[in-house]
Write a protein that binds this DNA or RNA. Structure first.
Lengths: 237, 237
DNA sequence: TTCTAAATCAGAACGGCGTTCAAAGTTTGT
DNA sequence: ACAAACTTTGAACGCCGTTCTGATTTAGAA
């Protein structure tokens, strides 16, 4: 990599770093090419040498942020023994919430309306990370499936219910998993996402430390509905 | 009401109607004072006679939209006999989703980042509607509580876990309800909200009619976790 | 090494936005 | 009839994304 390419990579990184800083400090509106350029001592239009458009920069940020979320969540999950299925699900769920509370702007960027006038590219802004998330959840669901299948509500699910890309990838990794287990994985996702997004967007009491307890209860209920014993677990905040 | 006041009310309504139209047709960015004025044959600054600021207009819209959501949801719930607890919960849940799919921009306005640079006023943009939502869900949880309390995961919840305003209002309406039932109501909210918001924001497969089935399964599982019999219910899409 | 083509930048410009302000126009009540 | 209140306009300010022109710097081939 020549000198030119190195400078370019460095500038690109600086743009992204400042964009992230503005995002954290001033919310989505503060992420503007002109403001970034101003802080870097560059003209706003100069950034167009590094990103084709502002949306491209945002997409790039979403990718990074989504990846960092998954890194953290997977790490938390893998800190629990693989045979402790309930513990791994609990760890995943708590990690998602803690990450979201620590990075609310990032959470909004990934799961909400990212930024004024932003339009996600086809296939979503971070298809790679999204696939990782799906696979991670499916792995948890697959591990829980032997216990869960007895307790699950009966609803017919077919592979054709899912997008071909997702279904294909999943069946590659988990050949013997029934489609109902994939539905379970998505529902687990929804259960975690619901309370977290209500909390991040301020629709929960906005008072005291309650949301943590509420979320913990929800996770325990999720485990119970999977047929997993949670009698002894209690204090993993 | 004099002629002047009537004209004023009419203009105010027209502003809101056009704002809603732009919201539906062009997304949040299309809601701009200048664009509204343009369509009305008014200068953009004239709107400041009717709304103190753009955020005030948005807040007003959120209020209307949130209210219309609750009207629809409560109507759906009340179409089911009061003693059919499971049916009422199912009706509520399906109504929320159908409304969200029919009014995705409204859903984003209420539950997401509403619009570029919008900052909600203290107490939220629609405290009245939010309270109605909480009470409605609490009513459902209260009706289910006799069945549910046996199956619920044990987690201590106290009144102090909730915001004083919410707790007070709820205890007014449901004097004998334990705090755990309020936690259950909020968790029901989260369960419905999770899948719906993932679907509205395009994080679910983006393929086929699957989300409906997934959501239905989730509602059935919710009912099951409440100890409500759902063996015969199946086809209420 | 010299020369050409590419990459990088600044700065002006266009049209959009929310908001403010002074001035003109209109309605209301006295 | 007239003063006070309200409504509206249009210009202005500063912000934004984006495009374009032209200058400057760099990389690689001759």
């Amino acid at each position: 990599m020549g000198r030119r390419a190195r400078l370019r990579a460095q500038t690109t990184a600086e743009i992204k770093a400042i964009a992230l800083k503005h995002l954290r400090e001033g919310g989505p509106d503060a992420v503007s090419l002109r403001a970034i350029g101003r802080e870097m001592g560059m003209s706003g239009s100069a950034i167009y040498s590094y990103f084709e458009t502002r949306d491209a920069l945002i997409t790039n940020l979403i990718n990074d942020i989504y990846t960092s979320l998954l890194d953290q969540v997977e790490t938390a999950r893998d800190a629990v023994a693989p045979d402790d299925v309930a513990g791994r699900i609990l760890a995943w769920g708590q990690a998602v919430r803690l990450w979201a509370l620590a990075n609310p702007e990032g959470f909004r960027l990934i799961y909400g309306d990212p930024v004024a006038g932003y339009h996600a590219p086809a296939g979503g802004p971070a298809p790679e990370a999204a696939k990782r998330a799906c696979l991670g959840l499916t792995e948890l669901a697959a591990a829980a499936w032997p216990h869960a299948k007895a307790t699950q509500v009966f609803t017919e699910h077919r592979w054709s219910d899912f997008s071909p890309g997702l279904a294909g990838t999943i069946r590659e990794h988990f050949p013997d998993l029934p489609p109902a287990a994939v539905a379970l994985a998505l529902r687990m996702w929804g259960r975690m996402h619901g309370l977290i997004s209500l909390e991040v967007y301020g629709h929960l009491g906005t008072q005291t430390g309650d949301p943590a307890k509420l979320y913990h209860t929800e996770l325990l209920d999720l485990l119970r509905s999977l047929g997993l014993d949670v009698g002894t677990l209690r204090s993993s905040t």
